[in-house]
Simulated scan of single mutants.
Amino acid sequence: MAALELVKPATGFAPPEPRPPRRLGLSQRLSRWDVKVSPYLYISPFFVLFGLTGLFPLAYTAVVSVYDWNLLGGQGEFVGWQNYADVLGQAIFWKSLGNTLSIFVLSAVPQVIIAITLAALLDQNLRNATFWRMGVLVPYVVAPIAVSLIFGRLFADQFGLINELLGTVGLDPIGWHQDRLASHVAIATMVNYRWTGYNALIFLAAMQVVPRDLYEAATIDGAGPLRQFFSVTVPQIRSTIIFVVITATLGCLQIFDEPRLFDAAGLGGADRQWMTTVLYMYDVAWGNQRDFGRAAAVAWMLFVLVLAIGLVNFLLSQRIASSGRRAPRVRRSVTRRMLADARSATAATTNTTSTTDRRDS
């Protein structure tokens, strides 16, 4: 009987004592640091170069904008916000701002529409597809000076090819270098010529990764090519559309080459009818005024304008991209109650399991 009592298993269960944490060696610490730090080291060259070529000039321009700074004398006395007030008081600044916004609308909107349409055509089963896809990139390779010189001759007032073609159909010639809206159309045409093919290839790359099963299902459901484009293609490439719209907005608001080379003088016309804000800044810094302080103030106001328009554009694009059927909103109180119920059920299951294990032992 005593022997039987000796071999009787104990009803209680004592948990094992926790082991003291083992100290990591130097090699293990280096391995952990490598996993945590190496990704930041890989991307650090970009941010270092961006800080030197982007953030530092931006901060230095802000310092220059509050001083009376000229080309010969250098830094003068501190004037604070006077440079900004002087720029805002000039009518030519507001005219250049209106010209910039007008050219932006005439170039960015048609550019995105034509680019996505061209990409949809290139996404079809075409013969020599590689040739056509690379052909749309040729205008982007051409130098901006060459594009401006060629289009400057095409849109010439006296001997331009466009006016010659208008004369053959009985229309009066257009003063491309005299009329304000006509000059904006001509400059926007140059911008669209250069950047439409580039954006079309971006859209094409996004369309190539759209699952073909979606098109097959749409075809079975009876959807035509146009319906498939708006119901399948556009929703699948919304993020790419947002990217292209934002980059096109930033580029068109900073346009300089095309209006600078549209005529021989390069000052935006006799009445500054196509002078953009960047061209106005260039004229303030290197023209008759030679005032770097005011030019820096123009640069910072343009930066704020581009940032504001880009932010509004991004928010609108995000809203369009996220439009559609949304899941119903759940209150925080409901979420907390569901979590509490789940924790209680888990605790009850754990207690039941431990009790059963003790009984079996």
Rank of each mutant, 00 (worst) to 15 (best):
L30S: 06
L30K: 06
S31K: 10
R32S: 06
R32W: 08
R32P: 05
W33Y: 09
W33E: 03
D34Q: 14
V35C: 06
K36A: 15
K36N: 10
V37H: 01
V37C: 01
V37R: 00
S38W: 11
S38A: 12
S38N: 06
P39M: 00
P39F: 02
L41I: 09
Y42Q: 09
Y42K: 10
Y42T: 06
I43Y: 01
I43P: 04
I43N: 00
S44W: 06
S44L: 15
P45Q: 04
P45Y: 07
F47W: 11
F47Q: 01
V48Q: 04
V48W: 07
L49R: 01
F50S: 08
G51Q: 03
G51D: 03
T53E: 09
T53C: 12
G54V: 08
F56K: 15
F56E: 11
P57E: 09
P57K: 02
P57A: 07
P57Q: 06
P57G: 05
L58V: 00
L58C: 10
A59L: 14
Y60N: 11
V64D: 06
S65N: 02
S65M: 02
Y67K: 07
Y67R: 11
Y67T: 04
D68I: 07
W69E: 04
W69D: 05
W69I: 02
N70F: 00
L71A: 11
G73L: 13
G73W: 07
G73D: 12
G74H: 07
G74C: 01
Q75R: 14
G76Q: 06
E77T: 12
F78G: 05
V79E: 11
V79F: 09
V79R: 12
G80R: 09
G80A: 06
W81M: 15
W81E: 13
Q82V: 12
Q82S: 15
Y84K: 04
A85R: 15
V87A: 11
V87K: 03
V87H: 06
L88M: 14
L88T: 04
Q90M: 12
Q90Y: 09
A91F: 12
W94V: 07
W94E: 04
K95C: 03
L97V: 07
L97K: 04
L97R: 02
G98L: 03
N99C: 04
N99V: 01
N99S: 01
L101H: 04
S102T: 15
S102W: 09
F104K: 04
F104A: 12
V105K: 08
L106D: 00
S107C: 03
A108E: 06
A108V: 08
V109I: 13
V109W: 06
V109L: 05
V109P: 00
P110C: 08
Q111M: 14
